[in-house]
Every structure is written in structure tokens, then in C-alpha cells.
Nucleic acid binder design. Structure first.
Ligand code: SF4
Ligand code: SF4
Lengths: 130, 130
DNA sequence: CCTTCATAGACTTTACCTATCTATAATATC
DNA sequence: GATATTATAGATAGGTAAAGTCTATGAAGG
């Protein structure tokens, strides 16, 4: 029960991209180096973010990654879901109907966490940077 | 990023115990059978709950498990922490000081979930049973 | 004494995360 | 067009923690 490292990398990359100039994309090599992770592995993670249409990739020389147009709508929950999937944190083997009290408590608890992550946008971090 | 099955087993066992008579303890064999899990594995999990002083174990014939005295104070968070530990869900490799905005968001989100789990007691489920 | 039942440790198996390697496609520069 | 640069994709290997098994030990009741 922990967030994966991939999520960690994704969040840091997004933080880097949101503070960077959208004019010149940043290569995966540079992004990887600043986080101490291999470029090939990070690129796998970033591809997920591309598929989720949060960032754009530019191939070829002077290529790299930059935020997509909808950068102001991206929430923490979006990033996490893009990497970890959207499955529920608590899954029971059998399903004994909707009135199950255990499931109700667990699902609501997860919902509380999600709603905070959904209400916090990536753009909210920009002002807080020194 | 998922709750472990062990947590699932623990929650169900606790639900069974809270609705049972405290006079006669329930054996691990019966508890395991109703959940479709092996008795030896479940016993490992229940031992953690004993160490956390949430349940008591009685050895010997007619032995088994029953809730401890403080049954009215047991929260969902207590059970989860007893099984999964109390480490934070989000852990970054480097620590760049307290002002880190990523960590702040993630920690607060987790806190929202925890506070719901802490405010829901095991005893709250009893009324809801048919 | 013998049966029942919890406890503990060592151990195996399984599943998933993490990471690497290689080949391929796209783009810019010359 | 040739070449260098860079992202993408798939296969694959490694590592780690969860999930489950086995066996031995110890406590309690009859
Ligand atoms: S009791 Fe609830 S949580 Fe447990 S298996 Fe049934 S539906 Fe799932
Ligand atoms: S930026 Fe924040 S979350 Fe990232 S490594 Fe530094 S302290 Fe941790």
C-alpha cells in the first residue's frame, strides 16, 4: 500500500514542465538526470502522460516534452490515475451487495483523498515556487 | 497502490467478531473458512491484531479469538495500521525541506482519508447489520 | 496423558514494480 | 538526401514485497 515510484517521477516531471517555458521542450535525458532515474524508464512513464493528453512529445533533434494546451485543468488526481490506473484501492473478493458496510467506509475514505487530489491543480504549485 | 488482502481479511474478521458473543471465542478455522483463506495464513494476520491489543486469543480446547475490552474504541484506521504499518503512502527519495509543495499536497490528501478512517469505529457497523 | 488450538519461524510461490536493452520511427540540421 | 538527435515500443530480466504453505512448539481443557 504505497504510491509507486513511477507516480513520484511523474509528479516531479510535471512540476518541472509547468515551471518551464513552453516554447522549448525539455528532453527526457535532462528530466531523468535531475531525478536520478534512467532515461529509458522515465520515457515509459512519460508516454503514459502523453496518452493521457497531459503533455506533448516532439520527436527529432531539439525535441522533448512540454505541457499540453489544457495545462490549467490538470489535477493531481489526473496524473496519479494516468500512472496507477483508476481501480479502487479496496477490492473485496466477493461482492455481497451494495449495502455492505465495510466497502462503504473504505470507498468513502478513498473518496475523501481523491477529492483533495482532484481539487488541487498542477497550476496551483506555480505560485508557491520561490 | 492497493490495500493488501491481509487488510481485507482483518477487516472481515473484526466485523465477524464484533457481532459475535464475547462469551465463546471463535476459532481461526471457522474464521478462515468463511473467508476462503487458509487458517495458518489468517492466524498470522490475527496475531498482529492481538499484538495491537484489539483482540484476545485463548489457547487450548474451545479456544479462539474474541474482541478485547476496548472494543468500543477500535477504529478502521487502527486495524489498517496494525496490518499495513504506519508509513506514509507517498515517500520521496530526496527531502528538499518542509516547504515542498508536492509533499504537502500528497500528505494532506492522505490525511483526509485517514481522518475518515479514524472517525469510523468498528462499533458503528453493528447497528447497520440486519 | 491426550486432544485441541494458538504461536512462531523458515520457507516457497506468486505478482508486480523497476529497470535495461534493442530496434524502430519521426524530425531537424547540414 | 545523409546524418545526428530524440521519442516510442516491445521484449526481457531483476528485485522486492505480498501471499501462502509447512512444520515445530507451547498453552489450555478434559
Ligand atoms: S462483506 Fe462487503 S467488503 Fe466483504 S466481501 Fe462482502 S461485499 Fe466485499
Ligand atoms: S521536491 Fe518535494 S517530493 Fe520531490 S524529492 Fe524534493 S522534498 Fe521530496
Amino acid at each position: 500500500m504505497k504510491f509507486t515510484k513511477a507516480t513520484n517521477y511523474a509528479l516531479h516531471t510535471m512540476l518541472t514542465l509547468v515551471t518551464a517555458s513552453p516554447a522549448k521542450p525539455i528532453g527526457v535525458q535532462q528530466l531523468a538526470e535531475s531525478q536520478g532515474v534512467s532515461p529509458t524508464y522515465l520515457s515509459k512513464i512519460l508516454t503514459k502522460l502523453v496518452k493521457a493528453e497531459m503533455i506533448e512529445s516532439i520527436s527529432g533533434a531539439h525535441g522533448g516534452y512540454r505541457l499540453s494546451q489544457k495545462k490549467d485543468d490538470i489535477t493531481f488526481l489526473d496524473i496519479i490515475h494516468a500512472i496507477e490506473g483508476t481501480a479502487s484501492l479496496f477490492e473485496c473478493n466477493f461482492v455481497h451487495g451494495d449495502e455492505c458496510s465495510i466497502q462503504a467506509v473504505m470507498t468513502e475514505a478513498e473518496g475523501k483523498m481523491q477529492s483533495h487530489l482532484r481539487n488541487t491543480k498542477l497550476a496551483d504549485l506555480v505560485q508557491k515556487q520561490p
